[in-house]
Design a protein around this nucleic acid. Sequence first.
DNA 1: ATATCGCATATTGGATCCAATATCTGGAGT
DNA 2: ACTCCAGATATTGGATCCAATATGCGATAT
Lengths: 223, 223
Amino acid sequence: MGMKLKSVDISKTASASAIVFNALRKAIVDGDLEVGQPLRQDDIAQMFNTSRIPVREAISRLEEQGLVKTQRYRGAVVSGLSAEEAAEIFDLRALIEPEIIRRSVPLMTEKGLRRARRFCEDFSNSNDPMTWGDLNRDFHSELYAASRLKYHLDVVDNAMDRVDRYLRAQLVLSDGMERASREHLGMLEACEKRDADLAAARTAEHIRGAKESLLEHLTELSA
Amino acid sequence: MGMKLKSVDISKTASASAIVFNALRKAIVDGDLEVGQPLRQDDIAQMFNTSRIPVREAISRLEEQGLVKTQRYRGAVVSGLSAEEAAEIFDLRALIEPEIIRRSVPLMTEKGLRRARRFCEDFSNSNDPMTWGDLNRDFHSELYAASRLKYHLDVVDNAMDRVDRYLRAQLVLSDGMERASREHLGMLEACEKRDADLAAARTAEHIRGAKESLLEHLTELSA
DNA sequence: ATATCGCATATTGGATCCAATATCTGGAGT
DNA sequence: ACTCCAGATATTGGATCCAATATGCGATAT
């Protein structure tokens, strides 16, 4: 079996429902689909040139993730968050992510730290608000990856998915971007110093700050 | 519209896929389906006297919850946990649940506390291992409910779903039951004294204890 | 005897069709 | 004008059918 073939595990090629699921998930998280917007099975099926069956499976998975809400015979709509719900999710993040990074720091490699620094710098230097969200998540994910805490990471990923659009809104408004850059650097430096507790504390502060800033803007908007 | 009719919101009557989903979820969590056991769509469809379509939706939702694992064209199997994975989930619980109870305590009503005490006593007095798992979860859920932290509760529910079978195993073995009863009472009394920090500390201790006990037995089993 | 191939069977993924429900529209009656 | 109802239309939920893939088994060649 020593063949020089670029082999692909064909059992892992995506099914139609997986493709639709990922596309819809990204569109919702990125805010390309507005909150409350109905997801018409037929329309989506036509867009992906498939039948409604994979679309329905995708939608039911999205519902399980809390990204859409369906009512029987009425279809699914993109689900939004009240300020309280967003705040609660930030609270959960502020609880979990510091612990993840605490356990990640001792396991981080030099390579991983370099990647993180790269994301951090790209984030700071980027002037394109569209990429901020991605770079922000790349940075966080890179720092957390070494922990190997699969389940924690799943939970955090879902939490971030749900508040991603609020996060980006918060980065764009006021001094959000500048502040995030500064705080990211602080987190990174703590990791580079291998100071797990400091990294955890700064992560907690970073998330709590984002929450506060977000809430100010939300109440400001609704006022 | 002042009719004396026991009205039912018909839009919330369960769809076939919801019924199948709930039934499978319960069967998996309760351990009625063994880890690794394949879920044949046709068999399940026949059991519920329906077609495979709702079954497939149910299975994809279960997969999203991490309760089954599917491989393309090979179907779904009940997913199990390694000792490390179980330990990680207990760690997450030990992180979140104390915080939930801390925020729940100030909001608990006398009524809620009475219900919790009832669950606690029923748990202690029960000699039927089959009901321990349910009463255990009822007790925890009752204490957490007042917090109104919907998202936190969702996360914890999923975490408990995943480790439920290990939890029950741990209760049955050795002094698990006796110890859990004692610790539950400690948590409850802290709540009744409205001592949120103490309740949180005891909850953390309870969960960490369960984890340790579980790991001992697991390594013992595999040794 | 063993490995391999090819076919039969089982099972899943997806398409199409039908049924159940919701929503919209237009008209009748007041 | 306004309300209410009936039918038309749109949409979802589910059943049935077909295609793609995996699995099991026996025949065959070495």
